[in-house]
């Protein structure tokens, strides 16, 4: 098992050279004032995105969706249907962009890969014993390797929240480094399960920890706990990727996941991206929505913009 291998050489490479330097660094990050952070997120939520801006935002949001199914009841049929929808979100309008990816369990990667073949839609797979992540590291790594072998373009791992909350940052770091290595060419999304980390200070520390360890994306949640993506925790993570790039030159993506269901919400998140990290992140290579029902709402809004009429659920597909 590789230990503490620096992910890349940059200004902060030495930060993770030992448990104590890592701890000192993470605890030395500026604090987060809860009320101020949430007020800023709420204020950006009042932006009024109309007409051409709305059309742009909706298409952008569709292109950023990681269309997700993560159920015990997932079957090849269900995943194939999802893949088809990712490639042709609106069968009545072929100008609709494809989603960024479909996101499935490792055992469904091959099916998903086939369903999206040739479309440019990526296949992402949750791994590392998603969502709890409570297995031995070699089991997690095997999970990752299986998904990658099956053709996954992207791996969504969960961090060891228990270790993080116990202050064992190096353990979390080492695991991410190991998973990153197991990913090979696949891009790695690191899920913090922000709802379990509880405080914004923890979310900021986890963000930096993940980026230092080589995450390609930092991701809020599994969608399996009570509190998932919120404007405030996503804003905080956008600040982190912005600051990390300023210090290291390395750009990292952000993926809020869980709880984003309406176009209005999605557009608010894009405003957060636009006014926090900036336009470099307004691209599905750097920002994603982990969602399932969101896509249909985006499609209905898209139809409304095109026709001037309100659409209804019968005019979008239920897959």
């Amino acid at each position: 098992m590789p230990t503490s291998a620096p992910a890349a050489a940059h200004a902060l490479t030495d930060v993770a050279s030992s448990d104590s330097t890592l701890r000192r660094f993470l605890h030395g990050l500026p604090g987060v004032d809860t009320v101020g952070l949430e007020a800023r997120a709420a204020a950006l939520g009042t932006r009024s995105i109309k007409t051409t801006a709305k059309a742009y935002a909706i298409d952008l949001a569709i292109s950023m969706v990681d269309l997700t199914t993560l159920e015990g009841a997932d079957t090849p049929g269900k995943v194939r249907a999802l893949g088809t929808k990712a490639v042709h979100p609106d069968p009545t309008d072929r100008t609709t962009p494809t989603t960024a990816a479909v996101c499935v369990y490792p055992d469904m990667v091959a099916v998903a890969k086939e369903a999206v073949a040739g479309s440019g839609v990526k296949v992402a797979s949750v791994a590392t014993a998603f969502p709890a992540g409570r297995v031995a590291l070699d089991v997690k790594l095997a999970d990752v390797r299986e998904a990658v072998a099956a053709g996954a373009d992207e791996i969504d791992m969960v961090i060891d929240r228990g270790a993080f909350l116990a202050g064992r940052y190096m353990k979390v770091y080492d695991e991410i480094v190991a998973v990153k290595e197991a990913c090979g060419a696949a891009r790695l999304k690191v899920i913090f399960e922000t709802g379990e980390l509880s405080t914004y200070d923890n979310i900021r520390r986890a963000s930096w920890l993940g980026m230092l360890a080589g995450a390609d994306f930092i991701k809020t949640s599994t969608g399996k706990v009570a509190v998932n993506a919120t404007p405030a925790n996503t804003l905080l993570m956008l600040e982190a990727v912005r600051d990390f790039r300023a210090q290291t030159g390395i750009q990292v993506g952000v993926k809020p996941a869980g709880g984003i269901r309406t176009s209005k919400d999605a557009v608010k998140f894009l405003v957060l991206v636009n006014e926090t990290a900036g336009e470099d992140w307004l691209d599905n290579h750097w920002f994603r929505f982990g969602a399932s029902s969101l896509l249909n709402d985006l499609l209905m809004q898209r139809q409304k913009l095109a026709t001037g009429r309100y659409s209804g659920p019968d005019y979008v597909t239920v897959d």
Binding site: T194, V227, A232
Partner: peptide
């Protein structure tokens, strides 16, 4: 001075 909730998953959501 701000008070706010105890954590990010607190009552403010």
């Amino acid at each position: 001075h701000p008070t706010g909730s105890l954590g990010a998953s607190g009552s403010s959501y």
